[in-house]
Amino acid sequence: MTATTAAQREDRALERIDKFRQRRPRLLDDVVTLAHGAGGKSSAALVDAVFVEAFRNPELEQLGDAAVVTTPAGDRLAFSTDSYVVAPHRFPGGSIGHVAVHGTINDLAVSGARPCWMSAGFVIEEGFQISELREIVADMAEAAAHAGVLIVTGDTKVVGKDAADGVYICTAGVGVIPEGRRLARELVQPGDKVVLSGTIGDHGMAVMLARGDLAIDADIASDTAPVHELVEALLAAAPSTRWMRDATRGGVGTVCNELVKDRPFAVVLDEPRLPIEPQVLGACDLLGIDPLYVANEGKFLAVVAPEEADAAVAALRTHPQGARAAVVGEIIPEPHGIVALRTSFGGTRIVDMLVGDPLPRIC
């Protein structure tokens, strides 16, 4: 019997990694499930097979947080849209109204734009309390005013009893991209550093515990907040920043997988460097949930040039929202299309896209 050499074992490991890398989400379902809205593999399969296939165009195919478009006059704009179905409508640290505004502002900001205008559409269930609707709208007005963004148009629809979960909010936003600013996956290269603007998992766990279905008593508040000031601080300190995304549905793990998809590099995250509040980590451990997949509403990932990483983190930490900012990983040349985590125990594991729907309706 021939002994397996170290080189053969390495070749087999690389072959397994290559097969893993080539796996692409495919739409195999006959009906839509909650998993299709969770931001992971099922969401990616639905978007690719149904929406991108139908609406295909160069701007859409970038699949960023916002589309970057150019006006006939040559101005570059970011244009984003989103829908919010948070349950419950109010939770520690915020409400569906706050998230509806912050989410759209953040999509524009991480696309390199300065947010300017928003729309707001409401689908309201018959019997919904006007007093609660006023509170939600007041939260939206407060959030928009704080961010210096105008809500300039909207729409209202009312549906029958039990045809919606109280209220759904749809927003769209437009922002102006300063001349010379460009962020794109194509700019990312081996040696770059991955910067996280703050702690992860706060929003998803706050919403989940606020439902009252779990006998867990933890002081966890949502991180919902606009990140445009943080983004501007980072770009001023690190003008060679390559790419940014806010880690909402699917969390940091899924966002990193979106970064490496079909690209000639890999992301390696360092578990000890990931900033996580102890109570969030404890709740995740009790529930068997990986915090890398828990949604955030006020944090973003940035890939920055290695020589600017320290300046980027220092700039973020000057802002209260960025006090826990850190370099949490790096871009490496091999294996292509893989996200890996260096664990606290000294090992390494692959971080795939979110599978299933562990935290439904969190944004």
Rank of each mutant, 00 (worst) to 15 (best):
R9A: 11
R24H: 14
L27Q: 14
V31L: 13
T33K: 15
H36S: 08
K41N: 08
F55H: 09
F55R: 08
R56T: 15
R56M: 09
E59F: 11
L63M: 14
G64W: 03
T71S: 15
S80N: 05
S83G: 12
Y84R: 01
Y84G: 01
A87E: 12
F91Y: 15
G93A: 02
I96D: 00
I96H: 00
A100T: 05
G103S: 07
A109P: 11
S111R: 04
M118F: 01
F128A: 09
I130N: 03
I130V: 12
L133W: 00
V137T: 05
D139W: 06
E142Y: 10
A145G: 11
I151R: 08
I151E: 10
V158W: 08
D165H: 10
G166H: 09
V167K: 00
A172Y: 04
G175I: 03
V176H: 13
P178W: 08
R181D: 07
L183M: 13
L187Q: 11
V188W: 03
V188K: 03
P190Q: 08
G191Y: 12
V195W: 02
V195G: 02
G198T: 06
G198F: 01
T199L: 03
G201R: 06
H203C: 03
L214R: 14
D217W: 10
I220S: 04
I220V: 15
D223F: 01
R242H: 14
R242I: 04
R245L: 07
R249E: 07
G251N: 03
G253E: 01
P264F: 09
F265T: 07
V268L: 10
V268Y: 03
R273T: 07
L274T: 06
P275W: 07
P275M: 07
P278A: 01
Q279P: 05
C284N: 10
D290K: 06
L292N: 00
Y293N: 00
A295E: 11
V303F: 07
A309W: 09
A311W: 08
A312D: 10
V313F: 02
V313D: 02
A315N: 09
A315T: 06
L316H: 07
H319S: 09
A323S: 12
V327A: 06
G329E: 07
I332V: 15
E334A: 13
P335D: 05
H336S: 05
S344M: 09
F345D: 14
R349S: 07
L354M: 13
V355A: 11
P358A: 06
C363R: 11
